[in-house]
């Protein structure tokens, strides 16, 4: 049996791949105009998310993950310029009139932000804020909306949801606030959930619980999810596909297995190597030597070159193209085809 046939078979089995994508981002770039110059935070990024699918977007802090998510919902600050296309339900979100994009926000696409401590308005009760999210998109009475809020809080594991709904964010712990954010995000059964580092700001002890809640509700509602994280470790059990970003560019994408076991990108491999083993006490923070480059005046050629252990002279000359490896797997590296994928990165 030929490789291609096998591939089709495998793809057919996963089912979701065949249907129309829910979201199709095409060649999107975002730059910020600042006093110091233009910062290009997202460069020519293209990707798709299918209905019900979990796509993980991974990369070190500052690589452009949040900006990507915010830009496609048009929630980025005013001083930005966005180009490209974001197709959702047959509409290009980037040039949709304001009222229409508003009716998509919170109803079709909902977001969960990184820092639950600041993402909820301190002067309104948690219940009020979720009720507002329901009633802005649905013609329901306040009482019905409250009832739904209590159910939702119950669903995401907030104890005593009736009393808790009337409380203010500062009366919630960090983990509880993030659960409330999740409740708010799923209150209109969105088709797509964007979770931007949903557990990064939380205590290690509650991270796993919140991830579990997120997963359960995603499965229960059947919505697709774009899970943004800098922590590849978080992705392993939960994502269908992974895409790795670095310095505003997509570095590699593929199924979770392809990224974890057949990565063809030195950056991805460096990230993988930095996932701490359960037993080891390796410090996550300094595991890839050096820092991401400045986006104000990025280095010539491949942005990862200065930190890359495999770099060759060619790397300084041109930004490598994405090289496709059948299916969805693609890597942006001059040496992509030469990387020996049989060597385990954690070895």
């Amino acid at each position: 049996m030929g490789y291609a046939t096998l591939l089709t078979l495998v793809r057919g089995m996963s089912g979701t791949e065949m249907s129309e994508p829910l979201l199709k981002v095409d060649d999107m770039s975002v730059s910020f105009k600042t006093d110091a110059g233009d910062v290009r935070a997202v460069s020519n990024v293209s990707f798709e998310i299918s209905p019900g699918e979990v796509l993980a977007v991974v990369g070190e802090s500052g690589s452009g993950k949040s900006v990507t998510a915010l830009a496609l919902m048009r929630l980025h600050p005013k001083n930005t310029e966005t180009t490209g296309q974001v197709m959702f339900d047959g509409m290009n979100l980037l040039d949709l009139p304001e009222p229409q994009i508003r009716s998509i926000r919170g109803r079709d696409i909902a977001m969960i932000f990184q820092d639950p401590m600041t993402a909820l308005n301190p002067v309104f009760s948690v219940g009020e804020q979720i009720v507002e999210a329901i009633r802005i998109h649905n013609d329901v009475s306040k009482a019905d909306a409250w009832a739904k809020v209590v159910d939702l809080l119950q669903l995401v594991g907030v104890p005593e949801p009736k009393q808790r709904a009337a409380q203010y964010p500062h009366e919630y712990s960090g983990g509880m606030r993030q659960r409330a954010m999740i409740a708010m995000a799923i209150c209109n059964d969105p088709k797509l959930l964007i979770a931007d580092e949903p557990t990064t700001a939380l205590d290690v002890t509650v991270q796993a619980q919140v991830m579990e809640v997120l997963h359960d509700v995603q499965e229960a509602t059947g919505s697709a999810m774009m899970l943004i994280t800098h922590d590849l470790g978080l992705v392993a059990g939960s994502a269908d596909r992974v895409q790795v970003m670095y310095a505003s560019r997509l570095m590699e994408r593929g199924s979770t297995d392809e990224i974890f076991y057949e990565s063809r990108n030195p950056y991805t491999r460096a990230l993988l190597a930095s996932i701490p083993d359960l037993e080891s006490v390796k410090d996550k923070l300094d595991s890839i030597p050096g820092n991401p480059p400045s986006l104000l005046n990025p280095p010539s050629g491949c942005a990862f070159r200065p930190r890359c252990s495999m770099s060759v002279p060619q790397c300084a000359e041109a930004v490598p193209e994405l090289v496709a490896f059948g299916g969805n797997h693609a890597s942006r590296c001059h040496l992509a085809t030469e990387i020996d994928i049989t060597t385990g990165v954690n070895a």
């Binding site: 910020f32 105009k33 600042t34 006093d35 110091a36 600050p77 005013k78 001083n79």
Partner: peptide, 17 residues
């Protein structure tokens, strides 16, 4: 004074057009 504040206050580092 306003210029000095803008210059010395890191928060105005971004966002200006």
């Amino acid at each position: 004074g306003d210029g000095l504040r803008d210059a010395l206050d890191p928060r105005s580092r971004n966002e200006r057009n």
